[in-house]
Simulated scan of single mutants.
Amino acid sequence: MNATELHQDSIVIDGLIIAKWGRDLFEDMRKGQLTAANCTVSVWEDFQATVDNIVMVNELIDENSDLVMKVRTTDDIRKAKELGKTGIIMGFQNAHAFEDQLGYIQIFKDLGVGVVQMCYNTQNLIGTGCYERDGGLSGFGREVVAEMNRVGIMCDLSHVGSKTSEEVILESKMPVCYSHCLPSGLKEHPRNKSDDELKFIADHGGFVGVTMFTPFLKKGVDATIDDYVEAIAYIVDIVGEDQVGIGTDFTQGQDKAFFDMLTHDKGYARELTRFGKIVNPDGIRTVGEFPNLTEALLRNGFSEQLTRKVMGENWLRILGEVWGE
Rank of each mutant, 00 (worst) to 15 (best):
Met1Trp: 13
Asn2Glu: 00
Ala3Val: 01
Ala3Arg: 11
Thr4Val: 11
His7Asp: 10
Gln8Ser: 08
Ile11Asp: 10
Ile11Ser: 10
Ile13His: 06
Trp21Asp: 11
Asp24Ala: 12
Leu25His: 01
Glu27Trp: 06
Cys39Met: 05
Val41Lys: 01
Val43Asn: 05
Val43Met: 08
Phe47Gln: 09
Phe47Glu: 07
Phe47Gly: 05
Thr50Phe: 01
Glu59Asn: 11
Leu60Cys: 04
Ile61Phe: 03
Asp62Glu: 14
Val68Gln: 02
Arg72Val: 00
Thr73His: 09
Asp75Val: 02
Asp75Tyr: 09
Asp76Asn: 13
Asp76Gln: 05
Asp76Leu: 08
Ile77Leu: 06
Arg78Phe: 12
Ala80Thr: 03
Gly84His: 11
Ile88Ser: 00
Ile89Phe: 01
Met90Glu: 06
Gly91Lys: 13
Glu99Met: 12
Asp100Gln: 14
Gln101Ala: 06
Gln101Glu: 15
Ile105Asp: 10
Phe108Leu: 05
Val113Met: 07
Val115Arg: 00
Thr128Val: 15
Arg133Tyr: 14
Asp134Ser: 10
Asp134Pro: 14
Gly136Thr: 08
Gly136Glu: 05
Gly139Asn: 11
Arg150Ala: 09
Arg150Ser: 10
Ile153Phe: 08
Ser158Gln: 12
Val160Ser: 08
Val160Met: 01
Val160Glu: 03
Lys163Cys: 11
Met174Phe: 08
Val176Cys: 12
Cys181Phe: 08
Pro190Thr: 14
Arg191Asp: 04
Ser194Ile: 03
Asp195Pro: 07
Asp196Asn: 05
Asp196Met: 11
Ala202Asp: 00
Gly205Cys: 13
Gly205Tyr: 07
Val210Ser: 02
Met212Gly: 00
Met212Ala: 06
Leu217Gln: 13
Gly220Ile: 02
Ile225Ala: 08
Tyr228Val: 03
Val229Ser: 08
Glu230Met: 06
Ile232Leu: 01
Ala233His: 02
Tyr234Arg: 06
Ile235Arg: 04
Val236Phe: 03
Asp242Arg: 02
Gln243Asp: 13
Ile246Gly: 09
Asp249Val: 14
Phe250Asn: 12
Phe250Lys: 02
Gln252Asn: 15
Gln252Val: 08
Gly253Met: 15
Phe258Arg: 07
Phe258Met: 09
Leu262Ser: 09
His264Ser: 13
Gly267Val: 12
Tyr268His: 15
Phe275Asn: 06
Gly283Arg: 00
Pro291Arg: 14
Asn292Met: 13
Leu293Trp: 04
Glu295Ser: 11
Thr307Val: 04
Lys309Met: 10
Gly312Asp: 03
Asn314Ser: 06
Leu319Arg: 09
Glu325Met: 14
